[in-house]
Simulated assay, not measured.
Amino acid sequence: MIQQSRTDQIFDILNKLLVCFFILIITYPLLYILSASISDPSYVNSGKMWLLPRDITFEGYKRVFQSNDIWTGYRNTIFYTLFGTFINLAVTLPCAYALARQELVGRAIIMGLLIFTMFFDGGLIPTYLLVRDLGMTNTIWAMVLPNAASVWNIIVTMTFFKVTIPDGLVEAAEIDGASVFRTFFQIVLPLSLPIIAVMGLFYGVGHWNSYFNGLIYLTNKNLFPLQLFLRDILVQQQITAELMIQGSNIEAIGEQAKIAAIIKYAVMIVSAAPLLIVYPFLQRFFVKGVLIGSLKG
């Protein structure tokens, strides 16, 4: 074993203390929300509950899951996430591979047009008019097609192809008579599983948390994602509380405020729980994606 100097030991101790500090900062809000979702709202509102649950109750979760809309939202969000991620990968991977090839005619112009869209956007109204004119409003396509590809993800994937896939390998396949499509599907993609996992994860998280497209393009509740139903629950609780205030029913106001508070925290856990469960198992893909994006193309 290599003996550390006193300076190195102090440096390691400071690093460990700093890491523990950041872990505490990150972990505490999650634990607080989880505890608040199963604690008596009176303890939460008064500040007496600051870490561990007090007077445990599952009334918030009971009220959230009593709504059939929650299960409809889960079903829709899972479908949008899986189907939307498939479309994202089907657009991003071929586009990135084509741009990674130096022999692509007009490559610089295409890259310039793509990068241009990162700085200048058509805006909400023109985008809505386009989606409406294409007949996609109140359809599943409004949730998956407007964001079919991310320019940033295309650039990251292109960088991976340029750095990881040797030109000699592609040239050898072409010499053996392989077409561009066969080279891409049978040689390039099997060697690109890390970037496929990274992009699938990035797109999947985006679809799971997405609600704005549904808010703008959907009016049929059977197509709403989970996030819109959770938003409606919070809005309904707020409206009910305001109506009670107008009626000057003090006891009812206090009770409704408690219910609204506990539902608020339960809604946070319900919407974030799947990602919190999956993330620890897929964290290494996020790290790899950050490292890939830091490489020069």
Rank of each mutant, 00 (worst) to 15 (best):
L282C: 09
I259G: 01
F229M: 12
I23T: 11
L124N: 13
D232W: 12
W71R: 15
K288G: 02
T137Y: 01
Q237C: 10
A142N: 01
K221D: 14
Y217C: 05
Q256L: 06
F185W: 15
A36K: 08
W50G: 08
L82S: 06
Q246K: 07
A241N: 09
I233A: 07
V131G: 07
I263W: 00
F161M: 05
K16A: 07
K264S: 15
F86K: 00
F224T: 05
A173Q: 06
I259Q: 09
L30R: 05
G254L: 11
I125Q: 00
T139K: 09
L31W: 12
W152D: 09
E59I: 12
P53H: 12
N138E: 10
M136Y: 08
R63T: 13
P190C: 01
V270Q: 07
T72I: 14
I195P: 00
D176F: 05
V131F: 07
I253R: 05
F224I: 09
I292D: 04
A273R: 10
F116S: 10
V91M: 08
I56Y: 14
D40M: 04
T137P: 01
S150V: 00
Y28D: 06
P94D: 03
A108S: 12
G112N: 06
L129K: 14
S271I: 06
V151Q: 05
R182S: 12
F79C: 10
K264A: 15
S5I: 08
V151N: 03
W208M: 07
L169R: 01
N15Y: 11
N68L: 11
L89T: 02
L14E: 08
I87E: 00
L282Y: 02
L82Y: 05
A197F: 12
G200W: 09
T77Q: 00
F161T: 05
Q256C: 09
Q236Y: 13
D12Y: 13
T72Y: 09
Q237F: 06
V144F: 05
V180P: 01
S248V: 04
Q283V: 08
F22T: 11
G123E: 05
A261L: 14
D121C: 03
G168Q: 07
N76Q: 10
S42C: 07
L243W: 03
M158S: 01
S67F: 01
S37C: 12
I262Y: 05
M1Q: 08
L113S: 10
G60A: 14
T137F: 00
I292H: 04
L230P: 08
I216D: 04
L189E: 01
G247L: 13
E251C: 02
F285L: 10
M111R: 04
L114Q: 06
L34A: 15
T183G: 04
Y128L: 06
A241M: 11
I87R: 00
L134H: 03
N209L: 11
V44E: 11
I140R: 05
F83Q: 03
T127C: 03
T117F: 13
F22N: 06
I56E: 15
G297H: 02
Y128D: 02
I25H: 10
L104D: 02
A257S: 14
N15T: 13
F116V: 12
M158D: 00
E103R: 11
F58A: 14
V267T: 13
N153T: 08
A148V: 00
K48W: 09
R75I: 14
L24P: 04
T27C: 15
F161E: 01
W208S: 06
N88K: 01
A108W: 09
T117R: 10
W50F: 15
T219S: 14
